[in-house]
């Protein structure tokens, strides 16, 4: 069993996990969960949805660990899985629509206990509302580029799209977002 020391390299922990040491994978998870949670929280706002995305990421990482090629750091590989899982989440959300509409809630007799407090950042709420209307690909690009401050090359590497493709998509996504924000005025 690998001791969960911070000095142990990720590569060593990966080897240990493949060898059947689950404690090594728990240590890998502990090291990288903050980054994964941070990215997931940019896409999902509900805590249970964020938890679901992160669990999906690490479950996939665990079962596909043998496919991890050591040509890039483990963190980059996990972030790649995270990007795909967030994209899947956006697509699923777009396909399924909101989980339950306000009309259905009111018809079922639901009464909010207290009036919702006004948001301390109304402009940000408008930005999030506009971003929610973007297509999954547009939202993915905008989030990674503008909120996570990833470079075009980095996004290309994470998504598997070409750098030129990322630039074009980002340009269009910004234009769409600008239009959506203007319509909200």
């Amino acid at each position: 069993m690998v001791s969960a020391e911070s000095s142990t390299s990720d590569e060593h922990l990966v080897e240990a996990t493949i060898g059947g040491d689950d404690y090594a994978f728990a240590e890998l998870t502990r090291r990288h969960k903050s980054r994964v949670f941070g990215v997931a929280a940019r896409f999902a706002r509900d805590a249970s949805e964020i938890e679901d995305i992160c669990q999906e990421v690490f479950v996939q990482a665990y079962f596909k660990l043998r496919q991890f090629r050591r040509d890039s750091p483990f963190e980059h590989w996990v972030m790649r899985i995270t990007t795909f899982k967030c994209y899947d989440y956006l697509r699923k959300r777009r396909r399924d629509g909101p989980a339950i509409s306000a009309d259905v809630l009111l018809e079922s007799g639901y009464e909010p206990s207290a009036p919702e407090a006004p948001s301390p950042h109304p402009d940000l709420e408008r930005l999030h509302a506009a971003m929610a209307q973007l297509s999954p690909k547009e939202r993915l690009i905008i989030t990674l580029l503008e909120l996570e401050e990833r470079s075009v090359q980095d996004i290309a590497s994470l998504t598997g799209w070409s750098a030129a493709n990322v630039k074009v998509r980002a340009f269009r996504a910004r234009a769409t977002l600008r239009k959506l924000m203007e319509n909200q005025k």
Partner: peptide, 18 residues
Amino acid sequence: PDTSAAEYAFETRLMARL
């Protein structure tokens, strides 16, 4: 976003799920 509460004991929940 502050995810520290969601991150708490995440490894334990994950290993149980695995």
